[in-house]
Structure formats: structure tokens, C-alpha cells
Design a protein around this nucleic acid. Structure first.
Length: 286
DNA sequence: AGACATGTTGCTCA
DNA sequence: ATGAGCAACATGTC
């Protein structure tokens, strides 16, 4: 589920609840080593209990929550950073403080008002942890956001040149340059830019590179506004009304039609992932 | 039953 | 050394 905008949606969901009631009273974990990579769940729990949620941010497909505790007579100050990657099926939700952990609830933070739940059936996600006044190194290593000035048309052009022989679809999925783009966003971008997903990245014309770059930004902005809401306005759930003018609503439908050409959509595996495109407007060229 | 899933990683081969 | 392709991971749903 989670690409760029979904990560922001889930961040806001926890943020809203945690801001209302920031003190962590109790922590439940499934100590899955696959999930808890940078620190065992026990270390993380010990630091978070009696700490207060303070801030958070989302970048690419990841979310970072900060928890702090002031020094007192018996314990030192705590500055803890909880990083969450939602993988393929990860989800953050909020329940009543009486919530009983379910089978795939790997991390639950209890406050007096809520249970903040991280669940992930397939366990492709990650829970990372860092202690200290400065943020974790792995957070700073995330590539410049699609909506930042560092994500420039020139940088993209150079990257495509380096990945010249790979299908453009595969290149769009590379987090080192397109942070937060996943399978549906990549298809949406290519469809809007009228570029065939199998087109080798090095063969895009200059105008196509420019278009690809601007559509990355458009899709990122539209997805954030639609899926994650604006400001503190959080949609009630992820089944947001995404307009039928997007490819998104048609890409998985059997016999789906391109919302622009009304012609049939095509589907095939490109770059290792199922890809949907509109042959009527996305054509391969030399 | 079998195919498939909005993601990453670690391995092979060129 | 660098880039491209693919299996593997673990579980649920159609």
C-alpha cells in the first residue's frame, strides 16, 4: 500500500492522536528480528516508556517519530527516534487504549487515550531506532524529495543517462533518485508524460525528460493533497475519492480503459513489476 | 489451487 | 567497478 502520500497519511494519523496525548505509558512488541533491525524491541521499549511524542516527519516511503523525556533525579534525558518503513503491507492505525494486539500488530504504543499500532502482515517493513539529540544517519540519507529544488530536471537527466539501458519504469522505482515513487505512482507518471514504460531510459528525448520530471512533481503534489490531505486536514481513511481522471482508478480493472483515450489499457511485467499503460498514448520509439 | 500483491535486498552475470 | 535482472522474503486475498 504505502508510497509517498500514504506514508504521509499514516504519519498524520499517529501524529494527531499522539499530539493529543503524547506520553507513552506502555509498549507492546513482537520482537521480530526481521522487523526490528537497528535495535531489539526491548531497547526501543525501554526508551519510549515515559517519553513524550514531540514531532515527526515523512520522507519517501518512510516515517520518523521523535520521543523525548527530560532528565530527572533517577533517570537521564531521552531523545529517541523511531523510524518506520511500511514495506508492502504496513499500516499505522489508532485504536482505543484497551486495544488487544492482533496477530500482526508488531508495535503498539499505549497512551492514556490511544493505542498507536504498527501492523504489517507480510513483514516487509522495518522498525528503526536511534538515540541522541541529532537525527539518525539513515534518515539523512534519503534522497532529495520530489518537491524539493534539489530534485531538478538536470539531475534527472543525468540519472537517466547513467541508467540508459534500463526500462524507464524500472528507473522510476529507484529510491536513490525518485524517493517515494512506487508501482502505482510510476505508472501514473509515465501515463501522464505519455512515455512507454519499456522505453530505455537513455533514449528519452529532451522534451520527454523534462515532462517526466514535471509529472513526477505533479503526481507527488496531487497524491499528497488528495491522499494525505492538506495541513492538518486528514482524510478519514485511505479509501479516498481519487478522481477517475487518474490512471489509478483504472489500472487494476479487468478490461480497464484509459481515462483520456477511452482505449483499452495494457498490462505486462516491466522492470520486474506489473505495469499498466495506455498503448494509445504511450508508444515506444527509437 | 494458483496467481498475484502500492517493496527492498542481495546475489549473479555482463 | 558499475549496471541490469531476478529470486527471495511472508502472508493474505481474489
Amino acid at each position: 500500500m504505502p508510497e509517498l502520500a500514504e506514508a504521509e497519511f499514516f504519519r498524520k494519523r499517529w501524529h494527531q492522536a499522539a499530539l493529543h496525548s503524547p506520553k507513552i505509558l506502555r509498549v507492546h512488541t513482537h520482537d521480530e528480528k526481521k522487523l526490528f533491525r537497528t535495535a531489539p524491541a526491548s531497547i526501543l521499549s525501554a526508551a519510549l516508556i515515559h517519553s513524550d511524542y514531540t514531532t515527526s516527519s515523512a520522507a519517501a516511503k518512510q516515517i520518523l517519530f521523535r520521543f523525548q523525556r527530560a532528565k530527572n533525579a533517577t533517570a537521564p534525558a531521552i531523545d529517541a527516534w523511531l523510524g518506520i518503513h511500511l514495506g508492502m503491507t504496513g499500516e499505522l492505525s489508532v485504536f482505543a487504549p484497551t486495544h488487544d494486539p492482533r496477530k500482526h500488530d508488531h508495535l503498539v504504543l499505549y497512551t492514556d487515550a490511544h493505542a498507536l499500532v504498527f501492523s504489517d502482515p507480510r513483514m516487509f517493513g522495518r522498525v528503526q531506532f536511534h538515540l541522541g539529540p541529532t537525527g539518525p544517519i539513515w534518515w539523512t540519507q534519503i534522497a532529495p524529495a520530489l518537491l524539493s529544488t534539489a530534485f531538478s530536471a538536470e539531475v534527472i537527466a543525468a540519472f537517466l543517462k547513467r541508467r540508459a539501458r534500463a526500462p524507464i519504469k524500472a528507473v522510476l522505482l529507484m529510491q536513490e533518485r525518485f524517493p517515494g515513487i512506487g508501482n502505482w505512482m510510476a505508472d501514473e507518471v509515465l501515463w501522464r508524460a505519455a512515455i512507454h514504460p519499456a522505453q530505455p531510459a537513455g533514449t528519452l528525448r529532451p522534451a520527454e525528460v523534462k515532462k517526466l520530471w514535471s509529472e513526477c512533481r505533479n503526481v507527488a503534489r496531487l497524491a499528497l493533497n488528495t491522499i494525505a490531505g492538506r495541513g492538518d486536514d486528514i482524510p478519514s481513511d485511505l479509501n479516498i475519492a481519487i478522481p477517475d481522471t487518474w490512471l489509478f482508478n483504472h489500472r487494476w480493472k479487468k478490461g480497464g480503459l484509459c481515462p483520456r483515450t477511452r482505449k483499452k489499457l495494457a498490462r505486462a511485467e516491466i522492470g520486474g513489476r506489473t505495469t499498466c499503460w495506455s498503448p494509445a498514448r504511450q508508444k515506444l520509439h527509437a
